[in-house]
Write a protein that binds this DNA or RNA. Sequence first.
DNA 1: TAAGGCATGTAAGAGGTTACATGATTGT
DNA 2: ACAATCATGTAACCTCTTACATGCCTTA
Lengths: 170, 170
Amino acid sequence: MSLRHALLGLLSERSASGYDLLKTFDTSLANVWPATQSQIYTELTKLAGSGLITVAAEGPRGRKEYALTGAGMAELRQWLTETRPQRNTRSDLLLRVFFLGVLEPAQARAYLTGLIEMSRTEHEQLRQLADSIDWDDGNLSVHGRIALEYGLRFNAMRREWAEWAAEQIG
Amino acid sequence: MSLRHALLGLLSERSASGYDLLKTFDTSLANVWPATQSQIYTELTKLAGSGLITVAAEGPRGRKEYALTGAGMAELRQWLTETRPQRNTRSDLLLRVFFLGVLEPAQARAYLTGLIEMSRTEHEQLRQLADSIDWDDGNLSVHGRIALEYGLRFNAMRREWAEWAAEQIG
DNA sequence: TAAGGCATGTAAGAGGTTACATGATTGT
DNA sequence: ACAATCATGTAACCTCTTACATGCCTTA
């Protein structure tokens, strides 16, 4: 149920329409919690129904600008402080590692070199993303920068691990 | 659709019943691709229906021992070599980082020290798991060891990142 | 006036979780 | 004989993906 909290979090920064939020998901939250248009609109309707957000203003083309309510802010705070983040299990990438034994050794190594390449590419993309954003002093900026640093370190770790793994197999 | 491939992968090592597979999921695959009893039985029925596995033997208590077919092995190999592993997005843990600004600084730091603690604990659990397993030379053993090393490195990386992040906020 | 962007909504289906439901066999 | 373990199956519900469907407003 984190999509609802992602929406509450974004609305805590500023009021926005579903369309605005969709664009924010596609840019700043894409690497952390992707969401589709369909999902966002559905969830906004539910959130408004349960009083965590309200339609603060209506604009052209049926635009509805949602704002966080007090109850919504309380829910957001409670999620952040009272509930534990869940482990990230389910890694397609690691699952494959378990079964590399069914392949020829050369194919198995090719898989791992593919991971090395993937990690390099993602690292580079994040580095470029970091350069392209003008980091102000806003909350999302400060914390977005921290999340991005995670991505950089993660990809570096994964690349080194895959290099080590390729040696183990070779 | 990776559950089906996880099942095919395990059956490529040896034939097994749903019950056997369930236990394997709860032990060796739990950290990589958890699956519930309900899910496993449903998927086995589907896999048998599409000819990727067959009931090789029946035992007491309605036990059905499934074996991989040629088509199943082909599907497994194709998955490993022809399809790209998908990025692991959706991190509850990182999503929260984005919104730490709504909390008091002390609460935000508490969240990060919680992550440090979590990473330490998980690292230690994996270390103990590594000690408790008698690693033979089987395929699952070799590759399971590689996956476990990933977990160790991942938790070390995350701990260091959270320590760094706590400083950024402090 | 036409294209592109703004803006919302719904439906079908896949994958996953939780809970319910049942019963046979083995070991003490 | 009783408990623990082996063993399977189904149903309801939630989340997410993909696709369909519609229409308004701005600007070139």
